[in-house]
């Protein structure tokens, strides 16, 4: 059978063999950090090429078509927004006053940093999951723009993940939808306007469609639709980033305490533009 193969088929087979061996080699050595970085760089190169040649032009076209299609809708939205803008000056004055209060309090308490202080870096997603098994996205910002490993990433809805590796102009973000317990977040549940209960976001339960939270204080009374925000205690994320809402109050006693489910605030299917959040310095 092999003798009957023409030159092209033999060439194809050789290429296939080399690629298979190369892929398995990379997979086998992924446990080594420097090989992991090398593989990430190599795969990142392919992603960049695809984004530049295919994704970016089509995204631009799709957004142009969408802009035209929603023109009428935008006029109505614009009218509503104009009404809100009139109130904006009042809100801004109150906010500035609140900032002044915070600064005064920090000075009084000799604090350099509040957990709510953060700066953001705007970025575009250049590679997002095509399937539902991969939970890593690639952004077009890296060390040059000031991104560091562990920085939080949010979109319009809320917290979506954290930076896990950084290159000079790109970085990889592990989404909170990962089912592996690799992305734990210290959160707090807002019981009312002034009281919160501390909890730990363990992982995303794909079968129940929500984040699994472990309550750190079992005496708190948790009800449906309570807001879940970051607490800033893990020293990774600043506090106050929206994570989700309590969904159902079915308590389960896991190995580490009482567990409860929260539905995500962020829409993970809309990951075109995101913000990298850096804790203030």
């Amino acid at each position: 059978m092999f003798n009957r193969w023409n030159k092209f088929n033999r060439f194809l087979l050789k290429i296939g063999g080399v690629l298979l061996a190369g892929s398995l080699f990379l997979a086998a050595f992924r446990f080594s950090p420097w090989m992991q970085e090398g593989a990430s760089e190599a795969y990142g190169f392919f992603s960049s090429v695809r984004y530049t040649l295919i994704d970016a032009p089509f995204k631009t076209m799709a957004s142009l078509v969408n802009d035209f299609a929603t023109l009428y809708q935008l006029r109505e939205e614009n009218r509503r927004l104009r009404l809100q803008i009139d109130l904006l000056a009042q809100f801004q004055a109150r906010l500035e006053e609140a900032y002044r209060d915070i600064d005064d309090l920090k000075t009084l308490n000799d604090l350099k940093l509040a957990m709510t202080d953060f700066t953001v870096i705007a970025s575009t997603v250049i590679n997002r999951p095509y399937g539902t098994y991969t939970h890593t996205i690639t952004l077009d910002v890296g060390t040059v723009e000031g991104v560091e490993i562990g920085d939080a990433v949010i979109n319009a809805g809320g917290l979506i993940g954290k930076v896990t590796s950084v290159q000079s102009h790109t970085c990889d973000v592990l989404l909170l939808t990962t089912e592996q317990a690799l992305n734990k977040v210290s959160v707090k549940i807002q019981l009312n306007a002034t009281t919160t209960a501390d909890a730990l976001l363990e992982y995303y339960d794909v079968n129940r469609g929500g984040f699994v939270l472990t309550l750190l204080n079992s005496t708190s009374s948790i009800t449906d639709n309570m807001t879940v925000i970051t607490s800033g205690l893990g020293l990774t994320y600043p506090s106050g980033l929206l994570v989700g809402w309590i969904e159902g109050t079915e308590f389960e006693t896991g190995s580490s305490g009482i567990q409860i489910l929260a539905r995500p605030a962020a829409d993970f299917s809309k990951l075109d533009y995101v913000l990298v959040v850096k804790r203030g310095d």
């Binding site: 994704d55 089509f58 995204k59 799709a62 997002r128 999951p129 095509y130 399937g131 539902t132 991969t134 939970h135 989404l175 939808t177 995303y204 794909v206 469609g209 539905r263 995500p264 829409d267 993970f268 299917s269 809309k270 990951l271």
Partner: peptide, 12 residues
């Protein structure tokens, strides 16, 4: 995939 983006959270 640009018009029908996937939801990695699989809520839908």
């Amino acid at each position: 995939s640009l018009f029908f983006p996937l939801d990695p959270a699989l809520r839908t």
